[in-house]
């Protein structure tokens, strides 16, 4: 739409300005750790974490703002319950401003474990593009209370950035392309991009996540806007099933 997206610019800058630490992993892992730390600070949280779900059922913790939060992220997978898993399943944010209010019944094991470590509120945001589910961003707070409207929008924007970062980590994507104009188009809700994603998934016989990674890699390699590539795919001028284009 050509509107300057100040919120996205600001959130990108917060992540980019977050200093690296000695223990940071390479590439995506390090970027996600900086994202978690920046998100935690911007949202007045005590910690934040990103957990991923891969297409083959593999799941795990991708990054946490502080090492102390790694077991808390991990525990959801061990127990098979928690806001992160619910956010992924329901494809909607799960907002728990007060753990003492109903959460114990919903996640008996996880909620009490969180409470024991001093967490009083937790907010989980799905990392997804339609049916393509990548994982979730969890935000933990030591005081009960809702996120403000502005914080909520910021949190969703951090989730957008996490989606792009994870896509960049896909095998076929080109590392380092996160900060360019692709990000806006990836989550820019362009109908043709999502249609092209479905088409490529069938052409290649792959998941929707991988199909999007291939579309992005192609756009990067051809130096074309992602939206143009999507339009070409939908118009059947470009095909990913080998040979004809």
């Amino acid at each position: 739409m050509g509107v300057v997206d100040e919120r996205a610019v600001r959130v990108h800058r917060l992540v980019a300005d977050e200093p690296a630490r000695p223990g940071d992993g390479h590439g995506v892992a390090g970027r996600l750790r900086r994202l978690c730390t920046a998100a935690g600070r911007a949202l007045s949280a005590s910690g934040a974490g990103v957990s991923v779900l891969a297409g083959d059922g593999m799941r795990g913790v991708a990054a946490v703002s502080e090492p102390a939060y790694e077991p808390l992220e991990e525990l959801q997978f061990t127990l098979g319950e928690g806001p992160c898993l619910d956010a992924v399943t329901s494809r909607q944010p799960v907002l728990v401003p007060d753990l003492a209010d109903g959460a114990m019944g919903r996640w008996p094991g996880y909620a009490s474990a969180l409470h024991d470590t001093g967490v009083r509120a937790v907010f989980a945001f799905p990392l997804q593009i339609g049916a393509a589910r990548l994982g979730a961003l969890d935000v933990f707070r030591r005081e009960a209370g809702s996120l403000t409207a502005g914080e909520l929008r910021d949190a969703l924007t951090f989730a957008d950035v996490a989606v792009t970062t994870l896509l960049d980590g896909q095998a076929r994507a080109v590392p380092g392309s996160a900060a360019d104009g692709l990000e806006d188009e990836v989550v820019g809700q362009r109908a043709e991009l999502f249609q092209a994603q479905g088409m490529v998934a069938v052409q290649v016989g792959t998941s929707l996540v991988d199909a999007l990674a291939r579309l992005r890699a192609y756009a990067y390699a051809e130096d074309k806007p992602l939206g143009d590539v999507a339009r070409d795919v939908v118009a059947r001028r470009v095909s990913f099933d080998g040979g004809q284009s």
Binding site: Q92, G130, A131, A196, Q197, V200, V234
Partner: peptide
């Protein structure tokens, strides 16, 4: 509101993806 909207917008994306899958198949 924001949470519900998020779900609503995403459900439209799912429909577009399904359109692409069926269009190709």
């Amino acid at each position: 509101l924001t949470g519900q909207l998020q779900g609503a917008l995403n459900s439209r994306v799912v429909i577009e993806q399904a359109k692409g899958i069926v269009a190709q198949a």
